[in-house]
Computed example of a mutant assay.
Amino acid sequence: MAEGLVGTSRRSLTLAHVLLILGCVIVAFPIYYVTVASTHSLRTILNPPLPMLPGPETIENYREAVSGGINRIGGVGVDRLLLNTTIVALGIAFGKIVISMASAYAIVFFRFPLRMVCFWLIFITLMLPVEVRILPTYKVMVDLGLIDTYAGLILPLIASATATLLFRQFFMTIPNELFEAARVDGAGPWRFFKDILLPLSATNIAALFVILFIYGWTQYLWPLLVTNSNSMNTIVIALRKMISFADADTPWDLVMVTCVLAILPPVLIVVLMQRWFVKGLVETEK
């Protein structure tokens, strides 16, 4: 009986590993294909089948994409696109975290009239993403002269009801006695926030940063509307502009290089902050 259970358990474990490996292969193969394609010439890509091993054009393709500029997007290099996208992603991530922490701190630790009404008004904005309010938001950006600027790309996206809710739920787990003890010791609201809440929130901030950075990095609709010049494009917008309806008019070798470089920063963020990300998601007690 015991041997039968052990055998069944081993078969289940083996099946689980096979399914996981198969899933990894399915997910990783398109990335591998794009990476290999970025090392071949345009002629090789347009004459299938594409070789499954890296080609000899790696240095030339990456050099041309980064420093040579791409004709279909006005000669802008991928280095400029990566800079734009990094500024936007970091601005959105830090902006959301700062505003959400400040609003959650005020709602939890301060007593003022209509405090919960303010919280529910913030929460209701979940039903009003930028896609819903895009026309008035665009009108405001035009009136303020923020078209084709980093501020125009970042400011409409930095408010986050979800992050406010998450910080509020965490702050509510902190005993009121800690706040009272800090006040008795002479710590004002700012010092309590800086010296106590901020260190306690480190893992939550790290987990949210990873999510919000990727959210900002992959933005498409709003950057498409608020930028007119190619030099202000994000890398996602540039990728769409590089692709033509006719394969012969599309520089597929440079498109593949741009895809690889667009994938790398989010992957690095996830890999480097994986421990903090997982810890921030699973920790419930501080």
Rank of each mutant, 00 (worst) to 15 (best):
L224C: 09
L261H: 06
T35K: 05
L254H: 07
R72W: 06
D247K: 12
R80T: 08
P223G: 02
T227D: 03
P266V: 01
N233D: 11
M172S: 06
V140N: 13
M1Q: 09
T149I: 05
L197T: 02
L198V: 13
N233R: 04
V210A: 14
K194V: 10
V267L: 12
W217E: 01
I97P: 02
M256F: 11
I21D: 07
T39I: 08
L126E: 06
W252S: 01
F167K: 09
F209W: 12
I196P: 07
N47I: 09
I263V: 14
T85Q: 00
V271C: 05
W190T: 03
I70G: 02
V132N: 10
V78D: 01
F112R: 02
F277N: 03
T35Q: 08
L83R: 14
I107S: 02
F209H: 10
D249N: 06
A161V: 02
L208S: 00
K139S: 13
Q169W: 07
L83E: 11
R10N: 15
R191V: 01
L144M: 11
T218Y: 13
S100I: 03
K279Y: 13
R133T: 13
M1H: 08
A187T: 10
F213E: 00
P136E: 14
D247F: 11
I31F: 10
P189F: 08
L254C: 11
V270L: 14
A2G: 12
I59M: 07
A181V: 14
